[in-house]
C-alpha cells in the first residue's frame, strides 16, 4: 500500500468520506452518538494521518477501519460528549426533524442481526456501506477468500431466513453476484 501523507490529501479524504462515515456510525450507534463518534474518528485519523493511503478507495477503507476501531472502543468505555460536536448534533437533529421516518427492512435487519457478528458486519459493510466483498474483508481484517466464504454462507442463511417470511417465497439459491 503506497503511503504519501500530505495535509491537503488528508483533509480531502475526510471531507470526501465524512458523510458516509457519519451514516455508518449512525447506523451502528444511533443518531444521538454518531456526531461524537465521528469526532473520535477524525481525531484518531488525524493522529495517524501519515498512514493515509494515497488511493481514494484505499483511504476510504482506511477511514472505515478507524471508525470500526472507534466503535469497538466506544462499546468498552463510557460515551463522552464533545463540546466540539454540539453544533453538529443540533444541526443533525434539525435535519432529522424534516425527514420521514421509515422502518422498511426491519425484518431483513433482524435476519442480519441473527447472523454471527462477523457475518452480519460483513453483510452490512457490503450492502449498507457499498464496499466490495474484498474491501469489507480488509476492513474486518480477514483475507478476501475468507470474506467470500463468510459472505456466501451469510447469504445462504439470510435466504433461508427470509424465505420463511409470509408473502415472500421468491428466494432460491442462486450464485453470488457481488465481487
Amino acid at each position: 500500500m503506497s503511503r504519501n501523507y500530505a495535509p491537503t490529501d488528508f483533509t480531502r479524504a475526510l471531507d470526501r468520506n465524512a458523510a458516509d462515515l457519519l451514516a455508518y456510525l449512525e447506523r451502528r450507534v444511533g443518531a444521538e452518538d454518531a456526531a461524537d463518534a465521528l469526532a473520535e474518528v477524525m481525531v484518531a485519523a488525524w493522529r495517524h494521518a501519515d498512514a493515509l493511503p494515497v488511493d481514494a478507495e484505499q483511504s476510504r477503507m482506511w477511514l472505515f477501519g478507524i471508525a470500526r476501531n472507534v466503535l469497538a472502543n466506544m462499546a468498552r468505555s463510557e460515551r463522552r460528549r464533545w463540546r466540539l460536536t454540539e453544533r453538529l448534533r443540533a444541526t443533525l437533529s434539525n435535519a432529522r426533524a424534516g425527514a420521514v421516518p421509515a422502518d422498511e427492512g426491519l425484518d431483513v435487519r433482524d435476519a442480519i442481526a441473527r447472523l454471527s457478528p462477523e457475518q452480519a458486519e460483513l453483510v452490512r459493510l457490503i450492502h449498507w456501506e457499498g464496499f466490495t466483498i474484498a474491501a469489507a474483508g480488509e476492513i474486518l481484517g480477514v483475507p478476501a477468500s475468507t470474506a467470500r466464504t463468510r459472505y456466501e454462507r451469510a447469504r445462504a442463511e439470510l435466504r433461508e431466513a427470509l424465505a420463511a417470511r409470509p408473502n415472500d417465497h421468491t428466494l432460491t439459491t442462486n450464485p453470488i453476484t457481488r465481487h
Partner: peptide, 12 residues
Amino acid sequence: LLDRSAPQTTPI
C-alpha cells in the same frame, strides 16, 4: 432486500 434494509440516516 439487503440493500434496502439499511436504516435510514440523517439527510445530508
